[in-house]
């Protein structure tokens, strides 16, 4: 595993918020019929959560859990080293059901924006209402950051995590750091 090289390494930037590339993380795409017998149980067991997340919800504990992606798609988050094994076990558990499990840990990059202005950094880039009344921890939003697709969720009231495709990591990091440059406080929220 020493050869694992994420797109942005340990890049970080301190401006009006702290922007950092997160280390390699396990991410597994799961597609299936949420209401199918056994589906929820198998997926929850794999993710270590009690229940599937509702529409646009997250269920994360200790860096592990599930994100709602679409009515038939979930994203399982786990340790990078556990992703292959978890995906394989889940696929086995779902055998006989119509479902798709794919390890996409290397296909995506994760970033974190932290600080009082974290919401503003996102609101400069995404057509998403980042007001606390509209978006907060426990929710996930798929949208775009400037010109590329991204998923956004908050782990606490001042921490936003962002997932994008690996190939555009440098672009997304550039977007986030540019938006977090000093003097860029909007004072809107």
């Amino acid at each position: 595993m020493s050869d694992v090289k994420t797109a942005m390494g340990a890049a970080q930037f301190e401006g009006i918020a702290k922007v950092e590339a997160l280390p390699a993380t396990g991410m597994i795409t799961i597609r299936g019929t949420f209401s199918d017998a056994g589906f929820g149980k198998a997926v929850c067991a794999a993710a270590g959560v009690e229940a599937l997340p509702g529409v646009r919800e997250t269920r994360l504990t200790g860096g592990k859990g599930l994100l709602w992606m679409s009515p038939d798609e979930l994203l399982l988050i786990c340790a990078y080293s556990a992703a292959d094994r978890t995906a394989h076990q889940l696929a086995e558990a779902l055998k006989g059901q119509h479902a798709l499990v794919a390890n996409v840990s290397d296909a995506r990059s994760l970033f974190q924006v932290q600080g009082r202005n974290a919401r503003e950094i996102i609101a400069k880039l995404a057509p998403v209402d980042m007001a606390p009344s509209a978006f907060g921890p426990g929710m996930v939003r798929r949208s775009r950051l400037a010109q590329v697709p991204a998923a956004i969720w908050m782990t606490d009231s001042s921490t936003v995590q962002i997932m994008c495709f690996r190939s555009v990591s440098e672009y997304v990091y550039g977007l986030l750091t540019t938006s977090a440059e000093l003097g860029g406080e909007v004072g809107y929220y």
């Binding site: 057509p127 798929r142 949208s143």
Partner: peptide, 11 residues
């Protein structure tokens, strides 16, 4: 109608 988001055209 699937995710309930009021989505603007750019989405």
């Amino acid at each position: 109608p699937y995710c309930g988001v009021m989505a603007e055209e750019t989405e």
